[in-house]
Design a protein around this nucleic acid. Structure first.
Lengths: 202, 202
DNA sequence: ACCTGAACACCGTTCAAGT
DNA sequence: ACCTGAACACCGTTCAAGT
């Protein structure tokens, strides 16, 4: 431990919270634990996150979301961009599996921090010939689907380990499959969905 | 309040927990609150739910899931059954919006209580000519998609009320749309996904 | 057998006090 | 200005004790 007294800040608090969540889950993310991560007392956090724990967790969601948005290159070709969006989103969420459920429960925080992205996808689709209404729906369907899929995936990993406990052969098969990883199921579903959207063009 | 001393049971405890969750959310579902619902002290619950709060919440998920599975009639025609499955699932989850996030975080409990259903969908698809692998994937994709969609929908209702707070016109539009209800977005996405799956036949 | 009172080790948060 | 000690009102859970 260095004695350097880097001063606390909103960003450092949120970073520490993300580190604790990645390591110990949301359950383990008490104000006291985050403070401990920073070598500080719990009460100090409130000076930088006045809204308390809720604001801190909102900050964590926004940070993960921002990481992902910045990592994404768009081409203005709707199908490619939709695919890139879904795959990059899944990648980002896989790096922080314990955050996925938080994102799912805070869609407005997620939308807010990806305005540019959603807007770009939306105009790409309109340019390609989708009805305005369908473009709006499609963006929401794909982002929802990706969150939903990754959410299940995040909690399925631990469940997969107990596949043998099922007495129904089909369930054993399903959960063994899950434990092997889900990348191909994700691709299968994504392509099916994009095919279905493409059929609605014009 | 009658003085009838209907004895406590596992089922009554789980029912009371569901009632509290529907009314006050998961946050409000403390052991003390559930006990209060039953006119009993918190410590009494442990005699009927030895695993404590976790087991109680698992029971709530299983109960909502069972309600839904029992309400569903299947026809053995895969596309119709997939659609009926997704729509009935969304309906059931809409009746208990505060439970949706719990289901998303407990996929194994959900699967366990719908073995028969998953098995039936699976064989319908195989009968229709889907490869075994694709049928497995398809069942998972559709159930995930439905959970993910409904999850966002459940928390979007409250978010929709604050649509005006966004400074980006597109976001205002998106969230106003959400507040109006999402049935048509659900139908749009579901039909697109089923179209995409159908294209993979044979 | 079923229920409970008191207690333990936690939690988020407040607020007056320290430097 | 920034941090903290002590305290408050909660929480899940244990266990010996009551009926």
């Amino acid at each position: 431990m260095s004695t350097t007294r880097e001063p606390l800040s909103r960003e450092r608090v949120v970073e520490a919270a993300l580190a604790v969540i990645d390591r110990a889950g949301i359950q383990g993310c008490s104000m006291r634990a985050v403070a401990g991560e920073l070598g500080v007392e719990a009460m100090s956090l409130y000076h930088h996150v006045p809204g308390g724990k809720d604001e801190m967790l909102d900050g964590v969601v926004a940070m993960v979301q921002a990481e992902f948005v910045e990592s994404l290159d768009l081409s203005d070709e709707w199908r490619q961009d939709m695919g890139a969006f879904a795959r990059a989103y899944r990648d980002a969420l896989s790096r922080h599996p314990n955050v996925v459920a938080m994102i799912a429960a805070r869609p407005s925080v997620a939308y807010r921090s990806s305005t540019v992205l959603v807007g770009s996808l939306f105009t790409s689709m309109e340019d390609a010939g989708f009805a305005r209404e369908d473009a709006l729906r499609a963006v929401r369907v794909v982002s929802r689907w990706t969150i939903g899929f990754t959410l299940g995936e995040a909690s399925a990993v631990e469940d997969g380990e107990s596949a043998g406990q099922f007495d129904e052969p089909l369930l054993v098969e399903v959960f063994t499959d899950i434990a092997r990883g889900e990348a191909d199921v994700f691709e299968f579903g994504l392509e099916a969905l994009l095919d279905g959207l493409e059929a609605r063009l014009g």
